[in-house]
């Protein structure tokens, strides 16, 4: 929620253990283990239908796991009562794929909604904070009074991000933040996430398909495979011999996106 004297790098903020999710007889994840530390940006990748979004939705508490524990910021989310869950929700922010802005509210009202709901801030201060967030995510000030239907896809994502950041969460979950953006917009969004991590001491969990994002800002990458995740850095996963992972990080698109970067690093 805030930068404290010790910024707590290295502390585990999210630990998923023994997670199983299933819909009917179809098992999506089985015995999945994942640990995320404060201040890191972790990217979740995987083929279509491996349950990337399901994992994200399970972590934020929208889907109840069939088995396993999810320990977020010291609380076991599957065992929380409603009050404790609401308190925990204030400490996380979620950006859905298309922003998921409330269509009947303007951008500023969307951002002020969590503030209005969870704090007793006077309206003027709420608006001032919303204005800071609007500028922070790179929206033009005149976007404040627009409705979501009047915004482009990239602007909706930025506005959704501003709403997710309204309460200064400790963990930010992003579902395909760069999908549907042009390369310039996507790069700018990556840069924004990196900057916000620095400025607000965020931990970021993002589901993505974007190899550029993975290379540019992710500290670690979790690959969903066979109902589990395999976690590694970009460098270590590129050495991995598992066929899917090899194909993912060595396919033609991966080479185009990553080789200049690794060439520079080597």
């Amino acid at each position: 929620m805030a930068i404290s004297a010790t910024n707590g790098a290295g502390v585990t903020v999210l630990r998923v253990s023994g997670l199983r999710t299933q819909f009917g007889a179809q098992v999506i994840h089985d015995d999945l283990e994942l640990t995320i530390k404060r201040g890191e940006i972790i990217g979740i990748v995987g083929g279509s239908g491996t349950g990337k979004s399901v994992l994200l939705r399970t972590m934020v508490g929208l889907i109840r796991p069939a088995a396993g524990q999810i320990n977020m910021l010291g609380a076991e989310i599957t065992a929380l009562n409603d009050d404790a869950r609401a308190t925990l929700q204030k400490r996380i922010g979620v950006l859905f794929q298309d922003g998921a802005l409330f269509s009947s509210l303007t951008v500023a009202q969307n951002i002020m909604l969590p503030l209005k709901e969870h704090t007793d801030l006077p309206p003027a201060l709420r608006l001032e904070i919303a204005e800071v967030k609007i500028n922070m995510v790179g929206l033009a000030p005149d976007a404040a009074n627009k409705y979501p239907s009047e915004l482009s896809g990239g602007m909706r994502k930025r506005a959704g991000l501003a709403r997710a950041l309204a309460l200064d969460p400790e963990i930010l979950f992003l579902d395909e933040p760069t999908a549907g953006l042009d390369p310039i917009g996507a790069a700018a969004f990556d840069q924004l996430i990196g900057e916000l991590r620095q400025a607000l001491n965020l931990t970021v969990v993002m589901v993505t398909h974007d190899l550029d994002s993975l290379g540019a800002i992710c500290d670690r990458i979790a690959v969903l495979l066979d109902k589990r995740v395999k976690v590694g850095t970009m460098a270590s996963l590129r050495q991995d011999s598992e066929p899917w992972i090899h194909e993912y990080f060595h396919g033609p698109r991966a080479r185009a996106a990553l080789d200049p970067l690794t060439a520079g690093n080597e």
């Binding site: 303007t106 500023a108 608006l127 919303a130 204005e131 800071v132 967030k133 609007i134 500028n135 922070m136 000030p141 005149d142 976007a143 404040a144 009074n145 400025a199």
Partner: peptide, 13 residues
Amino acid sequence: TVARNAVPCPDPP
């Protein structure tokens, strides 16, 4: 960071 982003938005109509 906040100072850089302290640009007031126009009033709603």
